[in-house]
Nucleic acid binder design. Structure first.
Lengths: 160, 160
DNA sequence: CCTGGATAGTTACGTTTGAAACCAAAGTCA
DNA sequence: TGACTTTGGTTTCAAACGTAACTATCCAGG
């Protein structure tokens, strides 16, 4: 048996390369970067802007709050992305007469055109990605991601 | 058929909630946050510091460069995380006499103790996570993550 | 040797980020 | 009606980040 091992890092089998949170993060970052490479330089937008655009392509008219919920971004990030897109004339605010706190956001024609350009590229990118997976792998992946998203939030570590 | 639809966002079937890069990112973020909640407040460290610690628990003695490679972090991030851990007395630099540019980093006894505390918690966390997946799901997940990491990097979008 | 790259790591600097404070418009309730 | 709270959204501020520049060391080729 090995000599005194009292203080040295216990032989926990924690290998980073096999550690799920790490692996997930790296995979997500790589995939995300790959996609971003397609739109960031070419169209001068970042991930938050892209998420807002994507959401607005999906729902023609939508409030900032709803964008945040749908795109998993905090209100600060949404606010800034929206401001930036508005400044570039890609979206427009249409005030909600029934509640003057919020406004409906709408793609301008230029915004719609840009979205129409990026979306197919983005779809083609995931197409290429997913084509490396078998149908059953893809199905399982989606099911697993679903479970992870659901399950984790319930795991609000119970007080010792 | 619908009236003129020339400019409006084409009916691309791009639903963010079903879009792989987005889903991956969200899942990774949620999982990562769940884990971070375990160590960030309780032990006052962030993700980069945790990654360095995890790497060092795996390889008793390792250079900054190697940490970066193993933990998928840039040298700046590694440098800062290492500096912070060193300042807190959790790791120590042991100069490499054969190459004075680099130094081997080693866990101090306190560092090892801290690692010994966090690692089991981290492992228990993924345990809980993975227990929601069937063995075959887990296996597929790992295979898929592997593929995504490999494949994506090759997809350096070919010049038009 | 010594001069011109490389390489490990740090520092400087501008950008991005999120928490918390803030603002204005709605709701609540007495 | 008029306080008090809540809610959508913005702003502020300090921390975290990445790129690029820098330092110090090492390694070739001449």
């Amino acid at each position: 048996m090995p000599a005194t091992d009292a203080v040295s890092p216990e032989r926990t089998p924690l290998k980073l390369a096999a550690f799920l949170p790490y692996r997930l993060n790296v995979a997500a970052a790589i995939v995300s970067d790959g996609l971003a490479r397609i739109y960031s330089r070419r169209f001068g937008i970042g991930v938050p802007e892209w998420r807002v655009l994507a959401t607005m392509g999906e729902f023609q008219s939508i409030t900032g709050k709803a964008i945040g919920l749908h795109s998993h971004m905090g209100k600060v990030k949404v606010s800034r992305a929206v401001a930036s897109l508005e400044a570039r004339g890609l979206i427009r605010r249409s005030p909600n007469e029934d509640d003057m706190r919020e406004a409906f956001l709408v793609l301008t024609p230029e915004g719609a055109r840009l979205y129409g350009e990026i979306a197919p590229l983005a779809l083609a990118y995931v197409e290429r990605l997913e084509s490396t997976l078998s149908p059953s792998e893809l199905e399982t992946l989606n099911a697993v991601l679903e479970k992870l998203m659901r399950r984790t939030q319930e795991l609000d570590d119970p007080p010792a």
